[in-house]
Design a protein around this nucleic acid. Structure first.
Lengths: 343, 343
DNA sequence: CTGAAAGCGCTTACAG
DNA sequence: CTGAAAGCGCTTACAG
């Protein structure tokens, strides 16, 4: 990668390397217009491209932003990344992306690499067990932070670093309220893995809201945080409730903790001949764009995913201030639609 | 970012910097076990993390892979990125991601930055006008390549660089064949922007296959490469064909060049009271995961998106050989489903 | 096997 | 305003 160097440019322009550096980058010490012109011309003619690695080494900052997500192909995360990417561009930062497949080793490894690359900030999207990182990761972050690195989490806050928190619990509670207001009285839940905080929060918010009005769930099942997880959980649920086509007087209303799981559930029920919302109702969470045209339209909670991603990056980059104090809560918005319609 | 340095480690271990460097990285010159142990211990105790920037400067390579996509929130691209990410990890490379919103200036800017960061390779996903980059981009790539940078495009090949080509045209033709075999005789097309090669190829492949059997499209409309583009195009199509609920003896079969557009089209028709496949049939392209449970199930062409992303990275990283010769074609697979069912 | 030293390509006090 | 020089943190021939 033997490219044109600053030295080459300086030589051709007949100035020192220092001068060339000053005109080519926004230094406060501005050389005379004539000299500057010569340098710019030389740079253009030679096709000079500054070596960001060398700049990073000489300066304090790399202009890199590390972004860790569980699964980039999951629309939840890709929306977050889209927002993060836009905010990074606005701040002239480059995004280093890691998609971990929810593997903790890969996650740790990715973070290490980001630190090795001296990313100016790291954004961690996707919640983990009870807000705790494992020891090694924690130790790395400790040093990272000591060296001026900034950390922002999307989800529940860690012991240090900023956080953008979707109000999963509160929003799930609102959803429950809305459903009860709509006349529902029988509820069930399709939850996610107990190790995923987001899943737990949503489930808890929903169930507690029911409790407050003296109701409780008829049954709860859970599965992976995926379409297939929703599918298999829904089969178990159907068996547990002995759901049958056309049999229900008042359909049970099921809350699946993500839209993607809800879609899997509907698919499972369809195979059993069950219709939504006639035989069973369902609500999801996330308001995934590609699912907005689903039939029946899915009752869900909209989270401003792109804005969440963008805010996380802004907090991470917003130079001044103690980052540990940067906590932002983002509310969800309940969308009542056909999948929970009572005739 | 004043972190622990190699020098610190060397000092603590009582060896030279060179020795420390050799034990901490897989050098061929392996120091004695005792010395090595001392160094490793010192590194661990100090929490040493190598500075990738400095390493990149000293070595020839940065370990960075630049990946450019049109829109990371589009499931088409996020699937590609997932595959690319996995392949990059397998090769111990870090992914630098840019999502350009289909803006050519942003794209050019992103590529420049990747080059500035001395990415070892760049993968460009998402086709552009007639296989030509604009002059500036082209000139940059020229130099990039001259300096040992490797370029791989997903889509139609450029004048240089490797390419992974989804066989859009051939697959669209197969789709047309399959639909004709299924008994369809009346066809229409919802195309994409004329500037997007992928859209054009799919449209052409489909229409030419019809021609070969003496058929032609009743009407063609086009729109943006998005859900809304499909939606509005579908409204125009409905007007042009004077589609009415329950009126059609044999429904027209519409080919939308992407699944996402097809979904928008179905939504538009639904609002007009038109049912799929009773009043109008539709087929898409891409086999987007979140749409697999759509009702009615969508006839489409499956493209192994993750594999495409992974292969692009593999070609880009596969050190030896002239990269310009690396061309790989990836076939699609036709999936006939309910949305084109004839009763 | 180990070390002293040059070099990777920039930036930035420090002088002039 | 401009330049010589040190320094950012590593790697790697070149000697020993």
């Amino acid at each position: 990668m033997a490219a044109v160097t600053l030295q080459d440019v300086a030589q051709r322009a007949g100035v020192s390397q220092a001068t060339a550096s000053r005109v080519l980058n926004g230094s406060s010490r501005v050389p005379g217009e004539d000299v500057a012109d010569r340098v710019r011309t030389a740079a253009r003619e030679l096709g000079y491209v500054p070596n960001a690695q060398a700049q990073a080494l000489a300066r304090a900052s790399t202009g890199l932003l590390g972004l860790v997500v569980h699964d980039i192909a999951d629309p939840y995360f890709s929306s977050i990344v889209r927002g993060a990417q836009a905010a990074a561009r606005a701040a002239a930062k480059q995004v280093l992306l890691a998609s971990t497949d929810r593997d903790f080793d890969i996650e740790r490894e990715s973070v290490s690499t980001f630190i090795a690359h001296r990313a100016d900030a790291i954004v961690l999207a996707g919640s983990r067990q009870s807000g705790h990182l494992d020891r090694e990761l924690e130790a790395e972050f400790e040093r990272y932070r000591a060296n001026g690195g900034r950390l922002v989490v999307i989800g529940q806050p860690l012991a240090y670093g900023g956080a953008v928190e979707p109000e999963n619990q509160a929003a799930a509670a609102e959803l429950a309220e809305a459903l009860m207001d709509a006349g529902h009285r029988q509820f069930a839940v399709i939850g996610g893995p107990g190790s995923i905080r987001t899943a737990v929060d949503r489930r808890n918010g929903f169930v507690e809201a029911l409790c407050r009005r003296g109701l409780s769930t008829v049954v709860e099942v859970s599965g992976d945080f995926t379409r297939d997880g929703g599918y298999s959980a829904a089969r178990r649920l159907a068996a547990a409730l002995q759901l049958e086509p056309g049999a229900a007087a008042a359909p049970v209303c099921v809350f699946a903790v993500t839209d993607v799981m809800a879609i899997g559930a509907i698919a499972a029920w369809r195979e059993l001949g069950l219709q939504v919302p006639r035989d069973v109702c369902i609500a999801g969470f996330d308001d995934i764009p590609t699912l907005r045209d689903h039939t029946p339209s899915l009752t869900t909670v909209a989270l401003p995913l792109e804005r969440i991603g963008a805010r996380a990056v802004e907090l991470a980059l917003h130079g001044a201030g103690d980052i540990d104090d940067l906590r932002e809560r983002v509310p969800g918005r309940v969308l009542l639609r056909d999948s929970t319609r009572l005739d």
